[in-house]
Structures are given as structure tokens and as C-alpha cells.
Amino acid sequence: MSEWTRPRHLPEALEILAAAPGRYRVISGGTDLMVERHLAPERRPDAWLDISGLWELQGLQITEEGLRIGAATSLEAIRRHAEVAAHWPMLAASAAVTGAPPIQNRATLGGNLCNASPAADNAPVLLAYGARLEIVHHHGTRWLPYADFHQGYRKTALQAGELLGAVWIPYPPPRSRGYFRKVGTRAAQAIAKVSIAALIEAEREGMIQCARFGMASVAAVPCALPSVSQYLAGRAVRDIAEAPVRRGVRQDIAPVKDIRSTAAYRLEIASRLVLEAIDPRAARKKEDGV
């Protein structure tokens, strides 16, 4: 029979993990792991560390620079939080489309990131907002830009004995606007075919100072769009041409063909979404003109 450990305090959990690195499978809301266990019973671990009882990993706090979200906070709590809706509306939106209510009631933000699916719905938004991760170990805490967390298909920067402790999100700069869309097959449950978040900071009317993107389901890992961001920085909106944006998207993503769609479809939809994120009015005008 497999062992189940449910510590009450974070230091206790970290000590257990450090004493036997690699022995425990960490479980939080269980919405990914319970499915995996069901589908692949041969991969059942023989020791589980349940982090759902650790109060240090729960809840949202507003700080001077922004927001701290404990890794084991449910997507439901995030979706409902008034400050999240007011200052980080893209996060409220991504939490609200991560599965249906019974999933959101259990699923945690940390689980969504650590499960490291290329389709993770909250990943693009955290990339666009420039989130940082608080990673905890028995020997101390380290900080990592979320953009450096995903290192390969389902491979994260977490080392043996480490837990994701919290996600820190800075306040978006003044005069910035967000854009978030999930293109799937059905509103709630469906796995995204492509999802995108963008945070676009305008220096003054018509000029982009800085644009940061996050996309999911367009590569082996959730990814930012560095070439597109570089092309846009300091450019006037009226000088932005479609071709270089499309070129940048092609450079930055590596779409795959799978049961949900072809690579060509993903590249096309990704390019259109990026263009719309940059200039929602232009995209709408074009649609009207068709």
C-alpha cells in the first residue's frame, strides 16, 4: 500500500522532501494526478506528499509591488478575488476558463504550472504579466522569472526536494492594456488549441513602449514571443506591418500537429491572435470589411 503524508507546516514538508529527494510524488488539488493515476496505474508512486494542508501555500496577498499567490491556492479563489479582477483581469479570465467549476474548485495555480502541460491555461497570462516564482527548499528560497521555468516538454526548473511556494505578479504599468483569448472547441472543459495573453504598454498615444506575450499550445512549452516583442518595442502602431509580425511569430513558436489540430492551423491562428492583440481595432475593421 502506498504511503500518504500530509504535513501541516511548510518547514515540515520541506524537511521530509529533503531527507528523501525524489521519493515522494507531490499532490495538491489532484486534478491532473488523479486522472494520470487512473489512466496509467502502473506509474502510481509508492509515496505521496500531500501539500493541501500547508497554510503557507494558501491564499492571495496584495503587496506594495503587486500580488502574491500561494502555489496551492485554488483557481476558484483566484477567479473570485476582487483585487485580481481589478488589477489582473487576464488572470481572473484565465482561471475562469481552466476547466468547469468542479475542476476550478480543486485545481491549484501551482499545479497548473508544475504539471507543465504545453496547454496550461494560466501560463500565457503569467508570462505576459512578467510573473516571478518563489521556489522553496529545506535550505532556503530562490526566485526565478516564470519565463525561465519551463525547460523542455513537461520539464521544469524544479530540483529534487523543491516545491513551488508562490507566484508573484507585479502591478501592470500604467497605460498598459491586456489581451487574453483561449481558442478551444468548447467553452469550459476543452483543452486549448491555442491561447494567448499580451500586455501592451503604450508610451503615448499610438506608440508601443513594451509588449510582452505568452502563448500556450504552440510549442513544447508555454512560451513568450521575444522576436515579436523586440520588433514592437518603441514602434508607432501605424508603422507596424503584418509581415514582420508574422515572421516573428514563426520564429518564436514551434507548433506541433496533434489530435486537436495541424501545425499550419496553429501557426495561422497564432499569427492572427498576435495581430489582434497588438491592434484590436484593426483586426475588427478587417473582419467587418470581409
Binding site: R6, G30, H38, D50, A100, P102, N105
Partner: peptide, 29 residues
């Protein structure tokens, strides 16, 4: 379904709707 997709197993835990096929007993104390 046994995979969290259908809601046939839904119950309330502390007032919240959850799919009981995805809940390990170890978290129910």
C-alpha cells in the same frame, strides 16, 4: 468517465462542487 469530465460523480465538499473521482480520501479528514 472516472476522469473529471462528466460530473456524474459530483458531490459537495465543504459546500463546494467537486468530482469525487478526482478526490483522494487522504484529503478528506
Amino acid at each position: 468517465c472516472g476522469e473529471g469530465e462528466c460530473g456524474a460523480c459530483a458531490v459537495l465538499v465543504n459546500g463546494k462542487l467537486v468530482n469525487s473521482c478526482l478526490v483522494p480520501l487522504g484529503q478528506m479528514e
